[in-house]
Structures are given as structure tokens and as C-alpha cells.
């Protein structure tokens, strides 16, 4: 584990909404080339944590530090939300899928490469006159999109409107779109929700591929324990905004606090118990 350098350092992160403390004093490290999962019952603060990481919320206290190979240490909590993806290389997906529904799958993936293309088009001037530099950049963008479409088995659907496709497919498109930003760290909010067992297995394979082959850091919020326990290198368990356990899947499965948090709830999660 020590061979993987730390990508993201979360220090004493606290988020309060008025009197409600959604996250309290959370510290966590995420390593490159590894899959780190955040689990916890509903309302534990998982999505709030993602929103704090990606600039959608400004945390009340604490710091989120990203170690970028080129730009050095960047404080994500002080950046405008779009800089988190553009400069720090942290890209997220959403629990309730947020695609561009009337645009085709390919267009969705091209939008993700907006910053590179916009620079290449010299803020539209070179693009308007069809300069070679812009054309090359556009070709590159198409190739990248095609590469990820092929990898995620979406190539046949490239010219279909994204909103017309099935739930599981839309989830994959969202991941493909996030990958087109070339993130260092990809944050997936319940990517396995609504997937059938086969799709879920494919997702596992993809996550492992991204972390092992591409060296990306993967941060995962997931309820599906089939995914979490199989692929995670590191798991952090939240309950009512507090970190109650952290460790490898084996450690987490035997942790009395985790078992209590899950079984103590009215709604038992059988998958953990099993």
C-alpha cells in the first residue's frame, strides 16, 4: 500500500447546515491507483462529502488537499467548483444521473473535453476559420471519446440521444464522460445503483482496470456490497457524519461498530450481515 502515493488528503473536514452537522471532523487519505470506498447508511453524509470535495459545498471547517503531479498541492475547498475538475483533475458522477439528455452520447463525451477544445479553437476564432490546429485537436477529442466508448461497450450507441437509453447504460455513459476529462481522481456516487448482476460485474472489472492499468484514484460511494467488498482496497464507514471505521474489506466486515451501525438500524442491510 505504501507504494501508492497519496493523491487526496482530507483533514478534519466538517460541514454544518445550520444546526445539523452533516460531516464532523472527517480525515481520510485516498491513494493513486487504488479504490477507496465510502459506505454508510442513508443520510450518513457520503454525498455531502463528495459535494465538499468537488467544490459544490464550501466546507465549514477543515481542508481538502489534492497532490497534483504538475501543480503541486491544491486546496480543493478554496477553488471554484469548475476548477476542481479543470485544474485539480478531480471529476465526479452523480447519484441521480446528470447527462445532457437531448445530446448524443458522443456529444456528451465531447462536451467533457470542452476546456482542451476551447483552448485549441483559440476561443472560437481558429475554429471559425477551420485552422489545422483546431482540426487536429478535434480529431484527438473524437479519438479519445471513441476509445472510452469502445472500452465501455457504448460504441454502437454513439449517435443516439443519451436520454433515450436505459438506466444502466446512462450510468456507463456518465462514467465514460467523466473519464474524458482525464481525471487523476474519479469520484463515483453509487455507480452500481440500478445495475443488473452482469452490469455490476462489468463495473467491478472497469474499476479495477482504471485503478490498476491507468493508475487513477477511484473514490466510490456504494451501497452494493458485492461491488464494495470485491474491489475496494480501502473502505471508510460513515454514520451520522462521523467516521466509525476504516480499513481493508476484511477488517471492515469484522468491525463491531460497522455491524452495529448497519444492524442497529431499523432497515437491516442483509448483504453486510450475510
Amino acid at each position: 500500500m505504501s507504494t501508492h502515493h497519496t493523491l487526496l488528503e482530507v483533514e478534519h473536514l466538517t460541514m454544518r447546515f445550520g444546526g445539523l452537522t452533516a460531516l464532523s471532523d472527517l480525515s481520510l487519505n485516498v491513494a493513486a491507483g487504488q479504490i477507496t470506498s465510502i459506505i454508510g447508511p442513508n443520510g450518513a453524509g457520503k454525498t455531502t462529502f463528495f459535494n465538499c470535495l468537488t467544490g459544490f459545498y464550501k466546507p465549514t471547517e477543515g481542508a481538502v488537499r489534492m497532490h497534483h503531479p504538475q501543480h503541486g498541492a491544491l486546496l480543493l475547498n478554496e477553488m471554484p467548483s469548475y476548477h476542481v475538475a479543470r485544474k485539480a483533475g478531480v471529476v465526479r458522477t452523480f447519484q441521480n444521473i446528470r447527462l445532457f439528455p437531448n445530446m448524443t452520447v458522443l456529444e456528451n463525451l465531447i462536451v467533457a473535453q470542452h476546456n482542451a477544445l476551447q483552448t485549441a479553437s483559440r476561443f472560437s476564432l481558429a475554429g471559425l476559420f477551420g485552422r489545422a490546429g483546431y482540426k487536429a485537436a478535434r480529431q484527438q477529442a473524437l479519438e479519445k471519446a471513441e476509445m472510452w466508448l469502445t472500452r465501455l461497450k457504448l460504441l454502437d450507441l454513439a449517435d443516439t440521444a443519451a436520454g433515450n437509453l436505459s438506466y444502466g447504460t446512462q450510468r456507463r455513459i456518465e462514467i465514460a464522460r467523466a473519464l474524458c476529462v482525464d481525471p487523476l481522481l474519479i469520484c463515483l456516487d453509487e455507480p452500481a445503483a440500478g445495475l443488473n448482476p452482469r452490469e455490476s460485474a462489468e463495473l467491478n472489472e472497469l474499476l479495477v482496470y482504471l485503478s490498476r492499468e491507468h493508475g487513477k484514484g477511484v473514490l466510490l460511494i456504494e451501497h452494493d456490497m458485492n461491488v464494495v467488498m470485491r474491489v475496494s482496497d480501502h473502505i471508510c464507514v460513515l454514520n451520522f457524519g462521523n467516521k466509525i471505521a476504516e480499513g481493508t474489506p476484511q477488517q471492515i466486515q469484522q468491525d463491531p461498530n460497522v455491524i452495529k451501525a448497519y444492524l442497529g438500524e431499523e432497515e437491516t442491510d442483509e448483504k453486510v450481515a450475510a
Binding site: 459544490f56 437531448n102 477544445l117 476551447q118 479553437s121 475554429g127 471559425l128
Partner: peptide
């Protein structure tokens, strides 16, 4: 028509479709 096919035009449509997603992809909305 040319602008629409350029990054800025595609970005306009993306903003129309989902502003939050645009931000998450690093676009300056």
C-alpha cells in the same frame, strides 16, 4: 451554424441541458 459546432456552441447546449454537470466537468458556466 459554425459556432454551434464549435466547442463554445456545444457548451451552450450543454449548459441548457444540465448546468451542474457542466460544472462537474470543469466548465466555466
Amino acid at each position: 451554424s459554425r459556432l454551434r459546432k464549435l466547442p463554445v456552441g456545444i457548451a451552450w447546449e450543454a449548459v441548457r441541458e444540465d448546468e451542474v454537470a457542466c460544472k462537474a466537468l470543469g466548465m466555466n458556466v
